[in-house]
Simulated assay, not measured.
Amino acid sequence: MRIPFTKMHGLGNDFVVLDARTQELPRISGSIAKAIADRRQGIGCDQLILLEPSESCDFRMRIFNADGGEVEACGNAARAVALLHGEPARVETAGGQIALSPADGGATVDMGTPRFDWEAIPLAYAMDTAAMPLAWEELGNPMAVNVGNPHAIFFVDDADAVDLATLGPQIEHDPVFPERVNVNVASVVGEDHLKLRVWERGAGLTRACGTGACATAMAAMKRGLVGRTATVTLPGGDLVIEWDTDNRIQMTGPATEAFRGTFEWDEFA
């Protein structure tokens, strides 16, 4: 059975998108998602995105990381899907409903409301999520935010100087984060301007992380480091994050369709 796919990216964070809204596809397992994501023997991507019918929204978006694990949210993928869908839509995700509004070359995504209480992150036990009394080598006192998925944010003088390839997996798998965590290191580089690098849970270092940009902006706003609208510069480019008056996160940025193709299902099953 040959399956059509669309290869897309948001600021270099890349996706294979499968559309099961109008055609029935075989069941996606973690092992199949991992095989498709493999950059040497598969199609190659940071995340596999599956679009399905939804009873509560216009459609459902499921997200599988490169390690095969299914996760709750992906902001860059949401912009890519908005571009692919081509019109405003409400979308069901495991992290809650989001709203997409495509624009020329990208989209604005209503990512919902941030959650700061320890049980919503979730953490293994109660603590102050605004400045967690924890440290991993030079990284300490992070803020924890859930924006559909869990994030720990560290503010440092120079985000580029942190050995995130080493510290990222240590923090991601620390028992204090029972569902693991995305690890963000950020620096304030100007008025309402942040520089960010992210170790993504289940994907590792990527060129951009939309939910990471949202979580980091929320943390910076809560700490008074930036105003209610901020530009977040990632290795792949810029996102604009606004915390609106309804307590909702608005993320705006580009997305790109790279190419379309088909693959033989049995090669990955």
Results as ranks from 00 to 15, higher is better:
L50Y: 03
L51D: 14
L51Y: 05
S54W: 08
S54M: 12
S54C: 08
E55W: 04
S56R: 13
C57D: 15
C57A: 15
C57I: 01
D58S: 03
F59R: 10
F59W: 15
R60E: 15
M61P: 00
R62S: 13
F64N: 11
N65R: 05
G69T: 13
G69M: 05
G69V: 03
G69L: 05
E70D: 06
E72K: 02
E72C: 03
E72Q: 15
A73N: 10
C74S: 13
C74D: 01
C74M: 01
G75H: 13
A77L: 09
A77T: 08
A78H: 07
A80R: 06
A80C: 15
V81S: 06
V81W: 01
V81F: 03
V81H: 12
L84K: 01
H85R: 02
H85E: 14
G86I: 00
E87G: 00
P88A: 10
A89G: 08
A89L: 04
V91C: 07
V91N: 08
V91T: 07
E92M: 03
T93E: 14
A94K: 15
G95A: 02
G96V: 05
Q97P: 09
Q97N: 13
I98R: 01
S101V: 08
S101D: 14
P102Y: 01
A103F: 02
A103N: 12
D104P: 00
D104V: 06
G105Y: 08
G105L: 08
G106F: 04
A107S: 09
A107M: 12
T108R: 14
T108M: 11
M111H: 04
G112F: 03
T113L: 05
P114R: 08
R115T: 05
R115D: 07
F116K: 00
D117K: 03
D117R: 13
E119L: 10
A120F: 06
I121K: 07
I121A: 01
I121H: 07
I121M: 10
L123I: 10
L123D: 09
A124C: 06
D128H: 00
D128S: 02
T129D: 09
A130D: 14
A130H: 14
A131D: 10
M132W: 00
P133S: 01
P133L: 00
P133Q: 01
L134Y: 15
L134R: 13
L134V: 15
A135P: 01
W136E: 15
W136F: 15
E138V: 07
E138Y: 02
L139P: 11
L139R: 05
L139I: 04
G140A: 12
N141H: 13
N141W: 04
N141Y: 10
M143H: 01
M143R: 11
V145S: 00
V145W: 05
N146M: 04
N146D: 13
N146C: 11
V147N: 00
V147S: 00
N149G: 02
N149W: 01
N149D: 02
I153Q: 03
F154V: 05
F155Q: 12
F155I: 07
F155W: 08
V156E: 06
D157N: 14
D157R: 06
A159S: 09
D160K: 02
A161F: 07
V162E: 12
V162N: 11
V162T: 11
D163E: 15
D163Y: 04
L164C: 05
T166D: 14
T166E: 14
L167G: 09
L167H: 11
L167R: 11
G168W: 12
G168F: 10
G168I: 10
